[in-house]
Simulated assay, not measured.
Amino acid sequence: MKQFIAFVRKEFFHIFRDRRTMLILLGMPVVQIILFGFAITTEVRNVRVAVLDPSNDAVTRRIIDRVDASEYFTVIRRLHSPEEAERFFRSGDIDMAIVFSERFSDNLYTGEAGVQIISDATDPNMATMQAGYATNIISMVRQDMLPPGVRVSAIVPQVKLLYNPQMKSAYNFVPGVMGLILMLICAMMTSISIVREKETGTMEVLLVSPVKPLFIILAKAVPYFVLSFVNLITILLLSVYVLHVPVAGSLFWLIAVSLLFIFVSLALGLLISTVTRTQVAAMLVSGLMLMMPTMLLSGMIFPIESMPAILQGISTVIPARWYIQAVRKLMIEGVDISLVLTEIGILTVMAVLLITVSFKKFKNRLE
């Protein structure tokens, strides 16, 4: 029994001395419960609303104030024409628009007052929930404004769903799945490339060659870049001809942005390979440590606007977030490339930083 207790103590000492094991055992559950608890939410929050109110009467102002006061919506713009609403939707500045009919207050008692709710349906479930919440608020304000005993027909807002009127879920998950697949495949494959050279003993040959370390790193990425491009074409063909998700925008720019994201993912994998010592560690970091944040914090499944501010800040450093936003704009909304320059700029900066850090971390001598 004493020998058994001695072995148990030895194992405890081994675990306590290994900081990485302690981090996985005690730190990972904390991170997971926080991410799953706050990021996984189907609640409607922080919806950016624009209002077109040609009548500007007491009833419409009351409805707008009630919408803005709710915890779900924030009125950020007043529109002057329907064309403005379309422009703001395409630029990604608003998530929903409320359009009132003319002489809304006068027509309220005759039942002729009309309201249109326009929502971005690239995420069909969220668009339906947003329209439902706004409809409830409008109905409650209408009921409050009517004198006691007066009965008129209820206002049924006309709901218009942009970009996805058929409410197909594929329009929502295809851009997210594209980002997840390309990120995991590219990062996972390249993360083990340099580590494999270390474990097999062929790194010495590379280090004594006249090739500069930067070109060694880039040479590791080129084959995977070509293979990832083949994967990209396959994904696009399946999305269009099997899942029936059309490419509404420019196919050229969609491929160009995808290639930029592939390069970012490859650079991230190369960085992982330079800081890890074994293939197992590289696979764990690239697979486990990247998959969960990419799924939860990139906007692939759950809207970023509904997350706490701290998680929204963390999501800004996840490359897949910007790629998914760009794909939704180019592929689903069909916007011009000028409206995707922000995402392209951020991905470009990430690519340069990751390659630079990978070069700095690359060791010219084996330990």
Results as ranks from 00 to 15, higher is better:
S169A: 11
D144A: 09
S191R: 02
I355Y: 06
D95Q: 10
A170R: 04
D95L: 06
F38K: 03
T128S: 12
L214M: 12
L232Q: 06
P223K: 13
I64W: 00
R62E: 08
K168S: 15
E204T: 05
A282H: 03
V211G: 14
F359G: 05
S193F: 01
V8M: 05
L266S: 04
E11W: 02
K168Y: 07
A326T: 02
V340M: 05
W253P: 05
L162W: 08
L236G: 10
A58E: 08
V156A: 11
A256Y: 06
E71K: 09
V280I: 14
S209V: 04
G179K: 04
V280M: 15
V247R: 11
M189W: 01
A121Y: 00
T294H: 11
L288I: 12
E199C: 05
E102N: 14
I355F: 15
I118G: 01
M283V: 15
R66K: 12
T234K: 09
T274R: 03
L26A: 15
S169D: 13
M188V: 06
D93M: 09
F13D: 14
I344S: 04
L236R: 05
K2R: 07
S358F: 01
D123N: 15
R321N: 06
Y241K: 08
F13S: 13
A219H: 09
T342N: 15
S273I: 02
F88N: 02
V242Y: 05
V247A: 13
V211T: 13
I118L: 07
V141D: 07
Q325Y: 04
V150N: 10
V152W: 06
V150Y: 12
I235R: 03
Q130G: 12
L162C: 09
S209R: 07
M129G: 10
